[in-house]
Design a protein around this nucleic acid. Structure first.
Length: 555
RNA sequence: GUCUCAGUAGCUCAGGGGAUAGAGCAACAGCCUCCUAAGCUGUAGGUCGCAGGUUCGAUUCCUGCCUGGGACGCCA
C-alpha cells in the first residue's frame, strides 16, 4: 500500500468510526465512505459527502448530520489537520502537510516500479488485439487498436494482473486462398505470361513485390510444377512474407506479443470439430437449408448464425468459436478482445457462443476501437500518395513520428470516434501535446545534470521543507499515480494515463517557473527539491512507458 | 427498421449523482541579466443535443426524440 492509500484509509476509518458513534447509522446500513479530491483546493485535500448520503436514513438536514459526525470525530494519531463543513453538507478535510514527504521516499525507493500495485490480484487476463489478416499492410485502424491494446496490456500488467498478449493469425480462410492466387497471377505476369488476378485479389504493390522475389529466388520453376504444388508453396511463401511484415511493423511500433496463434492449428489439432461437437451435445445446433446453424438467438443474438455453409465450408465464425474455446481452456479468468468498430455487431454472437459452450458470457469483454479519421489542413486526409489506398501504419509513423503517433492514440478514449490532426501531430512546437510531457522529463534531466555538476544530490532528509503551493501540488499529483493506474486498468481506459501525464507535467512546469531548484545558499531545500523532481521524473517516465512513449533526457 | 458508439468552449476532446463543468489548440494581455520560453501567469469563451422522469440534488442515471458514425451476409 502506498502513502496516499494509507492516508485515505486512515481518514475513512476515522470517519466511519465517528458516524457509528453518532448513532445515525449502524454498521449494516452505513454506506461506504467516499473521499474525493475537490477540484478547488480551498475545499481541502479531501472531501466526503457522507452527511448528504445519510439524509434519508437520519431524516435530518445534511449540515446538521455533518455537525454531529464532526463532534464525534477523533483525529488523534491521524494525518487530519482540520475538518470543515461547507456547501450543502460536504465535510472538507485538510491534511497535515508532512505526509506528502513520504511520497518522495516511496518513489525514490521504488524507481521504475513506482505505480506498480497488486490491485489485479494476479487475475489471469488474456488480451487479443490487432489480429489483422496477413494479406497486406496494417492501416490506420489497426494502429489505433495496436496502440490501445499495448497500452492497456502494460497498464493491466502494472496494476498486478497476469497478462498475456495475443495475436490471432487468420491464416486459414478464403482471404489466404486469395492471397495465394494473387501471388500466382503476379508471378506469371512477372514472367511475361498471361494470368488473371482472382476476382477479390489483392491489388497492392506488396503482392507484386512477393512475385518479384519469387522469380529472383526460383526463376520460372513454378510454371512447370503441378497446380497444387505451386498453390501450396505460394500460399506458404506469401503468408510468411506478409506475416513477417506485420510482426516487424508492430515491433517497430513498440507493440510486442506473447503469443502468435495460428488459425490453421485449429484445423490441424481438430479443435474446430471439438467445439462443434460440444455445441451439438449442448443442443444448440440444427440443420436447415443444407446448412448447419448455431441457435445463438437462445443467448440474446438477433438471429441464428450459420456454422457450416451448404457448400460444406465453415463460416468465419466457426473457427473463431473454436479459438475462443481454446482460450477459455487455457484457464484465463478474463478474455479481452479489442475489435474495430466494423466488428461491433459481432459481439452478441461471440458471447452467445461462449455461453453455449458452457462458460460465463461475461468472461469475454470486447473493447471497441472506434474509427479514426485523419485530418490535414482542416480537411479529411484519406489516401496514401504512394499506393492510393488507405494510409498504412508505417506511413503514419514515418509522417508523424513514433512517439507522437503513440501519444495521440493514447490521448483518446477508444470508444469515441477520433479525428487525428496530422498538422498538430507533426508540428515540432509547443502546439503539440506530446512534447509537453517529454519536455518536462528532459527539463528535469537537465536540472539533475546541473545538480550533479554543482555537487548536489537528492536527499529525502528534509522533504518536510517542501511546503510551497507548487511543491504541494506536484507532490499530490505524483502520489496519485498508483491509484490512477489501478483505475485505468479496472476501467480499461488507457487514455486516463495520458490525461494524467498532462496534469503531472503541468504541475512540474508550474513548479519550475515558481521556484528555483538549485540554490547554493540553501543546501537542505535544494536537495529536497532534487528529490522531488527526481520523483517527478520517475513518475513521468513510468507513465509514458505505459503508453509506449519515450522519455528523452534531452530535447 | 433493429442494435451500437457519440453529441460538453470557435476546433479536438477529458470528466462525471453533488460545491464556481476542465484540458490542449485557436484568440487576447503579460513573463527570459535566472536550472532548456517545446515553458509559465492572466483574460475571454459553455442553457454539457432536445423533452420528460428518478433524486434532497442530474451535465452525469432512466425513457423518448433529434443529429452524426458504425454494424446488421451461407463475406472475412
Amino acid at each position: 500500500m502506498n502513502a496516499v492509500e494509507q492516508i485515505q484509509n486512515e481518514v475513512k476509518q476515522a470517519l466511519h468510526a465517528a458516524v457509528l458513534k453518532t448513532g445515525l447509522a449502524d454498521e449494516q446500513d452505513l454506506p461506504e465512505i467516499m473521499l474525493e479530491a475537490p477540484k478547488n483546493k480551498a475545499n481541502g485535500d479531501y472531501a466526503t459527502n457522507i452527511a448528504m448520503q445519510l439524509t434519508k436514513l437520519a431524516k435530518k438536514p445534511p449540515r446538521a448530520i455533518a455537525e454531529e459526525i464532526l463532534a464525534q470525530l477523533d483525529t488523534a494519531g491521524t494525518s487530519i489537520e482540520s475538518v470543515d463543513i461547507a456547501g450543502p453538507g460536504f465535510m472538507n478535510i485538510v491534511l497535515k502537510k508532512d505526509y506528502l514527504g513520504d511520497v518522495v521516499k516511496t518513489v525514490l525507493s521504488q524507481g521504475e516500479a513506482y505505480g506498480r500495485t497488486d490491485t489485479g490480484a494476479n487475475e489471469k487476463i488474456q488480451i487479443e488485439f490487432v489480429s489483422a489478416n496477413p494479406t497486406g499492410d496494417l492501416h490506420l485502424g489497426h494502429a489505433r487498436g495496436a496502440s490501445l491494446g499495448d497500452a492497456l496490456s502494460n497498464i493491466l500488467d502494472f496494476a498486478g494482473y497476469d497478462v498475456s498478449r495475443e495475436y490471432y493469425i487468420n491464416d486459414a480462410g478464403k482471404q489466404v486462398e486469395n492471397l495465394a492466387r494473387s501471388v500466382e497471377a503476379r508471378y506469371f505476369q512477372q514472367l511475361g505470361l498471361d494470368k488473371d488476378m482472382p476476382e477479390d485479389g489483392y491489388q497492392g504493390p506488396d503482392v507484386i513485390e512477393i512475385a518479384k522475389q519469387l522469380v529472383e529466388e526460383h526463376g520460372d520453376k513454378f510454371v512447370h510444377v503441378s497446380d497444387e504444388e505451386r498453390y501450396d508453396f505460394f500460399r506458404q511463401y506469401g503468408l510468411e512474407v506478409e506475416l513477417g511484415k506485420l510482426k516487424q511493423d508492430l515491433a517497430d511500433f513498440r507493440v510486442p506479443f506473447d503469443v502468435w496463434f495460428s488459425e490453421t492449428t485449429l484445423y490441424e489439432d481438430g479443435k474446430i470439430a471439438t467445439a462443434l461437437n460440444k455445441l451439438r451435445e449442448n443442443g444448440h445446433v440444427y440443420e436447415e437449408d443444407g446448412a448447419t446453424w448455431f441457435r445463438s438467438t437462445d443467448f440474446g443474438d438477433d438471429k441464428d448464425r450459420v456454422l457450416i455453409k451448404n457448400d460444406g465450408s465453415y463460416t468465419y465464425l466457426t473457427p473463431d468459436i473454436a479459438y475462443h474455446e481454446d482460450k477459455l481452456r487455457r484457464g484465463f479468468d478474463t478474455l479481452i478482445n479489442i475489435w474495430g468498430a466494423d466488428h461491433h455487431g459481432y459481439i452478441p454472437r461471440m458471447k452467445a457462443a461462449i455461453q453455449a459452450l458452457g462458460y460465463d458470457r461475461d468472461t469475454l469483454e470486447v473493447e471497441v476501437a472506434q474509427m479514426v479519421q485523419l485530418y490535414k489542413d482542416g480537411e479529411k486526409f484519406k489516401m496514401s500518395k504512394r499506393t492510393g489506398k488507405a494510409v498504412t501504419l508505417r506511413e503514419l509513423v514515418e509522417l508523424v513520428g513514433l512517439d507522437a503517433t503513440r501519444y495521440f492514440f493514447a490521448m483518446r478514449s477508444g470508444d469515441s470516434q477520433m479525428d487525428f490532426d496530422l498538422d498538430l501531430a507533426v508540428s515540432k512546437s509547443n502546439e503539440n501535446p506530446v512534447y509537453y510531457a517529454q519536455y518536462a522529463h528532459a527539463r528535469i534531466s537537465s536540472i539533475l545534470r546541473a545538480a550533479g555538476d554543482q555537487g548536489f544530490a537528492a536527499s529525502t532528509e528534509h522533504v518536510d521543507l517542501l511546503t510551497s503551493e507548487k511543491e504541494i501540488e506536484l507532490l499530490k499529483k505524483i502520489g496519485d499515480f498508483p491509484q490512477l493506474v489501478g483505475d485505468a486498468a479496472r476501467l480499461r481506459a488507457p487514455h486516463r494515463i495520458t490525461t494524467y501525464i498532462q496534469e503531472l507535467a503541468a504541475a512540474f512546469h508550474s513548479f519550475y517557473n515558481a521556484e528555483k531548484v538549485l540554490d547554493p545558499e540553501n543546501r537542505e531545500l535544494t536537495e529536497a527539491r532534487i528529490a522531488l523532481i527526481t520523483a517527478a521524473r520517475t513518475t513521468i517516465a513510468n507513465a509514458l512507458k505505459l503508453i509506449g512513449v519515450n522519455a528523452p533526457e534531452r530535447m
